[in-house]
Computed example of a mutant assay.
Amino acid sequence: MTPVETVQGDSPVILGLPHTGLDVPKDVWESFNETGRALADADWNIHKLYDGVLPGATTVRATFHRYVIDANRDPSDKSLYPGQNTTTLCPLIDFNDTPIYREGREPDEAEIKRRKRLFHAPYHTALAAEIKRVHSLHGLALLYDCHSIRSVVPFLFEGTLPDFNIGTDGGATCNAEVERIAREVCEAASGYSTTVNGRFRGGWTTRHYGRPDDGVHAIQMELAQKSHLAAEAPPFDLDPVKSERLRMLLADILTSLEQWALNHAGANNE
């Protein structure tokens, strides 16, 4: 089982894909209960949605499921959203607050450490290497972290999630123009809703790597799954009409961000 797949490109844009993987090692699978084995909280088909949208973009994709270990969590397991419901580095519950392990089979400290070494660390080693490589080519790198989630998840947030959820940790992880470009393209799209730094402010990946003063800009895009799936339930297939329309919009976002990055190549303090 290879924990990460990397496709190198020559664009200044890197697509992070930490939650599309469905692979689960046999020993972990055997410890899951029926809820865990449903693997419901993957970012279903997001890698297919973004495939080819920005030719030349580098992609770094985790192949393991987030129930094994969450590649978008702080390896120290520090909460991204103190005081709010969320899931942990090695989740014990799903997004409905339902246990995912058979009784007594939850991972202990040693097992969590093992999963960090085998899965979390290789993903971030690969991602960090691509950020360094792209930065060396262009004088900057723009990490766009790709995510999706069901539009209604009462355990995590109230009401219905907007279609586009842009996260920059309050503007700390990227140049203000990067956030503005993404927001304006989304807000101009008819029939979609958008928020910036709402319930999703950017996960550990965005916050860890986003260092605009060093020429590394990071932004997270959390898509509500109603914007591209036929149903937010098994088998979580892409809707061909909705997904093709969304792909055109994502191409506008990424092309605009790429052009900004190319215009500012070599200027670390933009």
Rank of each mutant, 00 (worst) to 15 (best):
A267T: 12
N268L: 15
G139T: 06
S136M: 01
E103V: 10
T58D: 03
H65F: 02
P99I: 06
Y81T: 13
C90E: 08
A141K: 00
D43S: 04
E111N: 03
C186F: 15
G215I: 05
G266E: 11
V185C: 06
R105D: 10
D27Q: 12
G83C: 03
I149K: 12
A182I: 05
E177W: 06
Y67Q: 01
A57H: 11
N197H: 03
T168I: 02
A71V: 13
F32S: 01
N197A: 06
R247E: 10
E179I: 04
H120F: 14
P91E: 09
L89H: 06
R201H: 12
L80E: 03
G36C: 01
L49P: 07
V153G: 00
E184Y: 04
F64C: 12
H65T: 02
H264P: 09
G36Q: 01
L238Q: 15
R180A: 14
H264G: 11
L246E: 12
E5G: 07
F236M: 05
E258N: 15
S148M: 01
D74C: 13
I69H: 04
L143H: 10
Y81C: 02
W29L: 13
A121K: 11
I112M: 14
V134D: 03
T2G: 00
N268K: 14
D252I: 06
S136P: 01
H120C: 09
P122S: 10
S243V: 07
R247V: 04
A62L: 15
R247P: 02
A233S: 15
I93N: 09
T35L: 00
V185Y: 08
L142W: 01
W204R: 05
P25I: 01
A224R: 06
P25M: 05
D97Y: 13
H208G: 07
H138N: 07
Y50N: 00
G203F: 14
H264E: 15
E187W: 08
R114Q: 14
Y209G: 11
A57L: 05
N269T: 12
N45F: 10
H208Y: 12
D237C: 08
L15I: 08
W44A: 02
V196A: 04
Y101S: 06
G198Y: 06
I131A: 01
G52A: 05
L17A: 07
P3V: 12
R133F: 02
E222K: 07
T35Y: 00
F95N: 07
L250K: 15
D41R: 00
G9A: 09
I46R: 06
